[in-house]
Computed example of a mutant assay.
Amino acid sequence: MTTRAVHPTGAARPEPEPQSRQSHRPTSVSGVGRRILTVAALAATVPYLALKTAWLAGSRIGIPDGSVLLDPEPVLMAANAVTVAMDACVILLVLVLTRPWGMRVPAWLLAVPVFVATGLLTPIITGFPGQLLVRLLGFGEDAAAKAVRAPFLDPWVFNVVYTGFAIQGLALAGLFVPYARERWGRRWQGVLGRRLPSSTGVVAAASAAAGLAVGAVHAYWAFGGGAGLGAERAAAYSAETAVVSVVHGTCALAAGAGALLLARGGTLRARWPLALTWVGAGATLAWGAWMLTASLGPQLDGGEGPPAAALLTYAGQMITGSLAAAVLTRFLISRREG
């Protein structure tokens, strides 16, 4: 039998709708704010998708004379197709994070692509504005560095594409955080609590050690060190390339530090070490894998590829991120059990 609550004035009011019948959707962001973030994320995919599609169709827009992209090899065409699919996945992620049915998507099926997207976009969100600031202050790439760099793409292409990537990253973060808070917020509420098993502590320590080594190498490169880069990359050093090295080194250190905090427990709020590990591990693992894969593939400029030291650094980034991700997974499992 259905009953109705009676207001003190005597007017009847309906009972709240049962939880099982309520619509499940993120409520931490206002409807207007969610729509703005959704439109921004979708619009930010347009420049990259348009350019890549045009290149696959044979256009040379944004490609200067003398660029190796004017006569692309099959492997480059395949890479373009893959990156188009990756950017198109942003559209699917936006739908999952904003539609009611998105709450029913299996956790792993959402967490993995969001983790990868976080990893790929975080260095762009932090590094690209840093490079713009360096140029604004007059410390950008000098003529000597430009002279040793073979023509690849017109400068405006990088500005348009990386601006789009930065907007994508910020918009996706603005949509994912309230979604995650509603669906999994109980796992990072309160303090870290008890330590994780000693075996997980060993993994965290290994991640921190690897991250420290990777961070040291990137710091060396950021301050102008050329060993392990190859003659061409060393000659192309500038304040802009230093920003990239600083970002990657910082991400590696963040991954190791976050893993240690998660493994040791303590009195910190759980969300801060969790966020540190998520972002640091994602960025270090994703970019290490990306750079290592690109280095082991055919060289577009006909060169011999990066030295072994650079390859070891990329592999070290993958190891750091993988170990930190393992600690992160164990932490989330323990919170679920709790």
Rank of each mutant, 00 (worst) to 15 (best):
L69W: 07
A308R: 13
P197C: 05
G266S: 09
E232D: 14
A12G: 10
A144V: 11
G62Q: 06
A286L: 01
H218V: 00
R60A: 09
A205Q: 10
G211P: 03
F128D: 04
G249P: 04
D154Y: 00
V217A: 11
G303I: 05
A216P: 05
N80Q: 15
K52H: 08
W290K: 09
P100M: 10
A315L: 15
V203F: 01
L120I: 14
A235E: 14
P18Q: 10
G303F: 07
M1P: 05
A324F: 02
A294Q: 08
R149W: 10
F115C: 06
T293H: 12
A231F: 03
G190V: 08
A242Q: 08
L312Q: 07
H24I: 08
T98Y: 05
R233N: 13
S30I: 05
D301W: 07
P307E: 08
C251I: 12
E337Q: 13
P197V: 07
A144Q: 14
V279G: 02
Q131N: 11
T200H: 01
V105L: 15
V29L: 14
P8Q: 06
S67E: 06
T126I: 15
L328R: 06
L323W: 02
F115K: 06
R330I: 00
T313L: 12
Y48G: 05
R336I: 01
V244E: 04
V246F: 13
S20Q: 12
A111E: 03
F165P: 01
R21P: 00
V191E: 11
G201W: 11
P72A: 04
V90P: 01
A117K: 03
A180W: 10
L296A: 14
V203I: 15
F165T: 03
F152E: 10
R335M: 02
T277S: 10
A222M: 13
G130P: 05
P113S: 04
T3F: 11
T3Y: 08
V32N: 00
L76D: 05
A12Q: 12
L42N: 08
G140F: 04
T329Q: 10
L328M: 13
E232T: 15
S30H: 08
W290M: 09
V46P: 06
L120R: 08
A44T: 09
G230R: 10
V96T: 12
V6Y: 00
C89H: 12
G280E: 02
D65H: 14
V116Y: 04
M1F: 08
A11E: 13
R335T: 04
A255K: 01
M77L: 15
P129F: 05
T200V: 15
L92A: 14
V84Q: 08
T27E: 11
V244L: 12
A40R: 03
P47Y: 09
G321I: 02
G10F: 08
E337W: 00
A289P: 06
A326N: 03
T38P: 01
V327H: 04
Y48A: 08
R271I: 10
P298M: 07
W287H: 11
A231R: 14
H218P: 00
L95Y: 07
V243D: 02
R99V: 06
R60W: 01
A147Y: 05
W278V: 03
V114T: 06
V217T: 12
A286W: 01
L121C: 07
